[in-house]
Simulated assay, not measured.
Amino acid sequence: MAGTGPTMTLQGRLEDLLNEAVSAGITPSASCAVSRDGADGAAVVVGDAVRFDSDGRELEPAARTPAQADTRYDLASVTKVVTAVTALTLVRDDMLALDCPVAEWLPAYRDDDKRTVTLRHLLSHTAGLPPIWDGWKRPGSGGRARLVASVLATPLVTAPGKSFAYSCVGYNTVMALAEAVTGSSWSELVTERVLGADPDLGFASDGQACAATEYQPELGRGMVCGVVHDESAWSLGGAAGNAGLFGTAAALLAFGERTRAGLPGLLPPDLEAELWTDQLPRLLPTGESGVGYGQALGLRIGQRPWMGRAGAQARGHNGFTGTSLLMDRERGVSVALLTNRVHPSRSYSDVTELRAAVSNAVYDAD
């Protein structure tokens, strides 16, 4: 233990929390990096990045791969934050507009149901699209182009702007929209416009440097490692709008701090404000999401079950694989927490309590 009582450092408290989660079987490994008032602490890393072999069997302790500070984790839906920023750079350059119907660029959206869907709707989960697209389950000829067309053909569940419903389909529609407008691949757009050539945060992955995720023999993937876990993103080539990014805790924290600071040099103040501002009061008839938290363009707001009891003004996102990014301008903190809780199975655990405990520890630190 790193110490107990009021004299325990934040690093020590985080180490204890992560070790307790690993010991309790919540996740095989965890990596956490925190910035407070602009000062970054070293990443706290515990557990095994790879604990189960290619056949899903638990490895002997000596054969496991320990997690390290440079271990890259599948960020899952934390990717959506970067997707939103990338789309806003196209708005910045007058290639897209937040409130213009996307039907101007996407013929698939020119029918009566979809013709009023805007980029703002897509980025705020108010377009009326369903949560998931299962077209990846139906292989066929035509490759990625056919799959993207299938995504765009997904019917609406409700009329645009009538309700909030979290949708991975919406974010892959943003990806398709950006590719249609620019003629460039999604991975190129995200890399060139937002991330740069940072080897610790991007779509390209090296299995040897990554934490493993799920064992999926039924899909012919075996033990997934260095390949995106999300099946829809996987079918779309790995780089998608809803998922696909890999990163270390330190690299994700650096992106979080850049975002918390207003993305200087990347977005003008008016667009950066849109990224940070709750969109639901403007878009929904009642101004309420019905889920107890706000939604900006890509960022969830005040989702306290994982952002912590003091996180009412926090922004961020979490991911299915056990990842999260929290940013709070009022309190001057950012927190990147990465786990591979789906290794070897998605039914392995829930890391909501761990996320909340980490957030509370950061907020409570002197």
Rank of each mutant, 00 (worst) to 15 (best):
G128D: 02
R138I: 12
R146A: 15
S141Y: 06
D111A: 06
S124C: 12
A127S: 08
A103F: 00
R115T: 12
G143C: 02
L122G: 00
W105D: 11
R146T: 11
T126Q: 12
R115P: 02
P101R: 00
A97Y: 10
P139R: 05
L106Q: 00
C100V: 14
H125T: 00
R138C: 10
T116E: 12
A103K: 04
G142P: 11
L119M: 02
I132E: 15
Y109P: 07
M95S: 14
Y109W: 12
K137Q: 13
L122Q: 05
A145N: 11
E104V: 12
R146L: 08
S141F: 11
W105R: 13
D99C: 08
R115G: 03
L129M: 09
G135R: 07
G128M: 01
S124E: 10
T126H: 11
R120H: 11
K114R: 15
L147N: 00
T116M: 10
P130N: 01
L129V: 07
Y109Q: 03
G142I: 10
R138K: 14
H121S: 09
W133P: 06
H125F: 04
L122K: 05
D99I: 06
A97N: 11
E104I: 04
R138P: 04
G128P: 02
P101G: 00
A108N: 01
D134R: 12
A127G: 03
R144L: 11
R115I: 06
R146M: 10
T126S: 15
G143K: 07
K114T: 12
L123R: 05
L123K: 05
H121Y: 10
R110T: 07
M95D: 15
A97L: 08
